[in-house]
Design a protein around this nucleic acid. Sequence first.
DNA 1: CGGATTATTGACTTGCGTCAACGGTGGTGG
DNA 2: CCACCACCGTTGACGCAAGTCAATAATCCG
Lengths: 279, 279
Amino acid sequence: MELHGDTPARSIVLRPPGRPGFVIAPKEPRASLPAAPCQTCSVRRLCLPGSLDDRSQPIFDSLLIGRRRLQKGQKLYRAGEPFLFLYAVRLGTFKAGLPLNDGDEHVSAFHFPGDIMGFDGVADGRHRTTATALEAAEACAIPYAQLMEACAGSTELRKRVAQLMGTQLVREYRTTQLVARHLSEARVAGFLLLVSGWMRERGYSPREFHLRMSRAEIGSYLGTSLETVSRALSLFARRGFILVHSRRIELVDEPGLQAFEAGDHGLGRAFSAAPVVTA
Amino acid sequence: MELHGDTPARSIVLRPPGRPGFVIAPKEPRASLPAAPCQTCSVRRLCLPGSLDDRSQPIFDSLLIGRRRLQKGQKLYRAGEPFLFLYAVRLGTFKAGLPLNDGDEHVSAFHFPGDIMGFDGVADGRHRTTATALEAAEACAIPYAQLMEACAGSTELRKRVAQLMGTQLVREYRTTQLVARHLSEARVAGFLLLVSGWMRERGYSPREFHLRMSRAEIGSYLGTSLETVSRALSLFARRGFILVHSRRIELVDEPGLQAFEAGDHGLGRAFSAAPVVTA
DNA sequence: CGGATTATTGACTTGCGTCAACGGTGGTGG
DNA sequence: CCACCACCGTTGACGCAAGTCAATAATCCG
């Protein structure tokens, strides 16, 4: 499950092994930022600034203390570390993993540009998940304490922060609902539709996209084995609902997938055009 | 799945069918409250007031606009309704259900005294879940807009609200992790331990408790059938890990359950005292 | 181009969902 | 207060879905 760890540490690490160039937690600042860093950001709409007005935006700008650039496999923070920063994903994809007793991790969420990561630390001041980059990525660090301070002065900002946490919570509800589905095909179909929606929200094609995560990570997220994920994808492809080229996915018949998600096996639906053999 | 609905409505209801005595959403006030209603509340610690100081508590007190008393099966709010209030559970148990396409619902959370319900509406101003009382219950209504206003003036309050949302989020992560476990016995064992923890937090006995929810509701929550839940409970009882009398549960061998949660089938563990026959 | 990682597919086995019947519990009304 | 009834929980039988093990194939690295 641990793929490209930048350190061999597996279990909960309260303080990451000291590697001077790569200190992770307490003092975050790295590359300094332009005066109004969000202005030119392509995912501004989705990110924390969202619809902040001209009064609130500068308040927020002053909080951004740096960006972090990560290679595939590097970690933004680890479960157990003190929670000091929220991170706005600027580029790339992340997974959030909840540690399991046996040293493995359960992938509990994926994060895309515009997402805010780190809310899992708000509860008690320690991160509960480990955030790992699935590809080259970039994230903006937002010091949480200062953000909360700034919330005193801006109704807009206050609303926005609450809204983002609420969104995370609802997303998680939906995830659980997906994982709770009985048939694994329904889970995989739902996952594809979920990813498609995330792509749409970000202005990418919802029909054709590149999965940044491995089958094993999808399986962990969905509560199935990686083989089952693979089989489900093959099945959908055979039925003509999708095209699969390794991690590149094209949705050909979205309603067909929706039928699968509903547990209909894609059979007997008016909109499922494929020949359909139960085999 | 719908057990004791107070109205026959099943799918998303934007405005509950008009029943003068039972209007649910927009104007909530009911029984008027004493001047400092939280002061004598037995679950104050866990609830929103938590550790609010003498300056912030009155601010919060002034927000509480009423309590609602519910019978078993009645609903606090429904998915799709406008989100105007958070609710603090004062008494009783609730389930939060996410509607499924087919009219059924997926139980996404259980709520106990001290819990704040309704955060699912923060994202976009509409409730995403339906909150149903599992027994006679009582909840305090907190107008969300006013709460957010009040947050401008109190750092304490701001922190507390964020903390509570964060706690909900982490809880949901844990739920998903539980549901994602492969073996259903691990899920049921984990559920019992979860409930035990909730009981402990509230000062009830963590060893002996009464499940307020049906096997079907547990099954929905865990993503298994009600029969499987029942079978798992019977198995644990046969192994001597628990005593089951319908909904009354006694944990006899907690480590044994933990082994099950870890997927060890309770076998070969030093602390599992039972005879253990694989049958 | 070569080695390592990741994905696919098959065969086997088991977990568990479904259907069905029975038994217990709790609530209601006579 | 007891009897009835509806609901809920338990248990068994059966068949399918999917987890596991294993071998091959494709892809991504350097």
